[in-house]
Each structure stands twice: as C-alpha cells, then as structure tokens.
Simulated scan of single mutants.
Amino acid sequence: MDTFALIVTIGVALGFTYTNGFHDSANAIATSVSTRALTPRAALAMAAVMNLAGAFMGSGVAKTVSEGLIETPHGNRGMWILFAALVGAIVWNLVTWYFGLPSSSSHALFGGMVGAALAGGIDVIWSGVLEKVVIPMFISPVVGLIIGYLVMCAIMWLFRHSNPHKAKRGFRIAQTVSAAGMALGHGLQDAQKTMGIVVMALVISDVEDAGDPIPVWVKIACAVMLSLGTYAGGWRIMRTLGRKIIELDPPQGFAAETTGASLMFTTAFIFHAPISTTHVITSAIMGVGATKRVKAVRWGIAKNIILGWFITMPAAALVAAASFGIVNVAFL
C-alpha cells in the first residue's frame, strides 16, 4: 500500500472538513447574528467550541458514510477514488461559498463519493444512497418547514399577551442556547461524515479493520479541523441565511434554530442518517417566516437555494469523476 496516497487522502479529508466548517458555520449562527443575539465573533467562537463537543457524541453517521454508500475499494486505486471524491466535494464547496449559496457540504461529499466510485469501477450501494441520502434530502426540508411553522405558531400563541419588547429581549438571550444546539448538532453530523471517510482510508490501507471503533486521533483531528474552519467564518452564506430569505426577529430565530437542532439530533441518534444542516435550517427559516405572511419569505432567493440543493450531488459527482480521470492517468 502506498503510504503517500494514504497521507494525501487523509490530508485532503481534513481539508474538506475545514471547508465544511467555514461553509456551514453560517447554518448554526446566521440567525443569531442577524437578530443581534450574538456578535459575529462571539457566535463563531461559540460555534467552534460546540462543533468540537458535538464531534465526540456518536459514531452512527460515520458508520453510514464509511460502509453504507459505496463498496469499500481496495489498494492504491481505492485510495485515489477516495481522493477524487473529496476533491469533487471541496471544489463544489468553494464554488458555492464564492457565490454565497448555502448548498450542502454533506451532499457534495456524497455526490463526490458516487461520482468517483462510478468512474473508478466501484459498486455504489444504491439502496443505501436512496435510504440514507436521497429520501432524507427530500423529507428533511419538508419536515423542517412544517415544524418551523408549527413551533413559531406555538410561540406566537404562548406569548400573545406578552410585552413585545420584553419578549424579544428574552428570546435574544434564549437564542444563545438554540444557536449552541445548532452548532452541537452540526458537529455531531458533519464531523462524523469526514470520520467515515478517514476510517474507510484506514481500512483500505489495512491500518484498521472494518467494524473497529473510530480511533480517538481521527475524532480529534476531524473535530479540530471542523472547529478551525467554523471559526474562519462563512460571511457570504451567513448574509444569505440571516437576511436575504427573510428579515428575522429573535423569536423567529429561536424557532428556526430549535427546529434545526431537534431534527439533527433525532436523525443522528435514531436513524444514523447524515442529513444536511443547510437543508434543515434553511427550510426551518422559510417555515418560520411564512407565519408572518407567505409573501414575507423572499421565495426568489429560496428558489435559487433549492435549485442549488438539486445541483449539488450531480455537480460534485462530475468533478469527482473528472478528478479520478486525471489521477488515473497520473498515478495508476
């Protein structure tokens, strides 16, 4: 086994985690920043710490990524397939970050895995892709929108007789808790996705056996890189989520974050499904905003975001397939 290929693949996996951090950090904190519940730097620092903590809370999602989507490849060819998958995901993350589009890092990774596997002649576990990726991709935004709407309706009813200014101050404080929950869920979901890739690389290289517990150093490395990327910030995407979909107030921000965090914990612990943080929080914001009035949501911006969701997997798959073609010529 080529040690160079293993080192390069793990390095690129950690690089993907870093881009995931600055790409998806906005998911956890955009609403808190836009409502002025937290300053941007305080929000980023809090999100980085909670991402780090969330990474150590489970391993079900990592197992799904490492064993449930593509057959484990073998030898140097298998290692370069993983490398190409990561390149596809990173390129798409950078493209969508540049344009300020909150696409899903998770689906970029899954698209990269499928594209590289197909290009490299590795079997794709289509049942796993359907059950763990495609179905949640459609269901989670719908659930996020509905629950966000219902949570906001409940808040409006419970506080209907409260002083509006006092209620907003209280929810601004409460948002520090809901934003922390979002960041914890992001760490729980997204750090594990990279852990799954690193574990697959270690299995290919015979350093680990399939089914072994995730090494502690893998958890630490993935968690730290996700946290560093989060602290680097994702200002372009933060503006889209925090201001362009709808002008949020503190109760709305709290409702959206609570909805998003609840769905991420539920899917990670019960279903071991790697859902998209981006999809969940964006749809929750839309659901919350619709309680004000349907036209309050800027559906033109929402339409562009949803279009990005559908493009992400095929686009990352194409980049990954092209990357494997280049690697195949250069190294294999």
Rank of each mutant, 00 (worst) to 15 (best):
K166F: 05
K166L: 12
K166D: 12
A167M: 14
A167C: 04
A167N: 01
A167R: 10
A167E: 08
R169W: 00
R169H: 07
I173G: 04
I173H: 02
I173A: 11
A174S: 10
Q175I: 08
Q175N: 10
Q175F: 04
T176I: 02
T176P: 02
V177T: 11
V177E: 05
S178P: 05
A180W: 10
G181L: 15
G181M: 15
G181Y: 06
G181V: 06
M182Q: 09
M182G: 11
A183L: 11
A183D: 14
L184F: 14
L184A: 14
L184W: 07
G185F: 02
H186S: 11
L188T: 04
L188P: 04
Q189Y: 00
Q189D: 06
D190M: 11
D190W: 08
D190L: 11
Q192V: 00
Q192L: 04
Q192M: 03
K193M: 06
K193E: 06
M195V: 03
G196N: 06
G196A: 06
V198Q: 10
V198P: 07
V199M: 15
A201M: 09
V203N: 09
S205K: 03
D206F: 06
E208C: 13
D209N: 13
A210K: 12
I214G: 04
I214V: 15
P215A: 01
V216E: 08
V216Q: 09
V216F: 14
V216K: 07
W217V: 08
W217M: 07
K219S: 14
K219D: 09
K219P: 08
I220E: 05
I220H: 02
A221C: 11
A221T: 10
A223T: 09
A223D: 06
V224Y: 12
V224H: 09
M225G: 03
S227I: 00
S227P: 00
S227F: 01
S227K: 02
L228A: 08
L228W: 00
G229E: 05
T230E: 01
Y231T: 07
G233R: 07
W235T: 11
R236F: 02
I237F: 04
T240N: 07
T240P: 07
L241M: 14
G242Q: 00
G242I: 00
R243Q: 13
R243S: 12
K244C: 05
K244V: 03
K244I: 05
K244L: 12
K244M: 13
I246A: 15
I246C: 12
E247L: 09
D249C: 10
P250H: 13
P250L: 14
P251W: 06
Q252R: 14
A255G: 10
E257M: 03
T258A: 15
T259I: 13
T259S: 13
G260M: 14
G260I: 14
A261E: 13
A261V: 12
L263R: 09
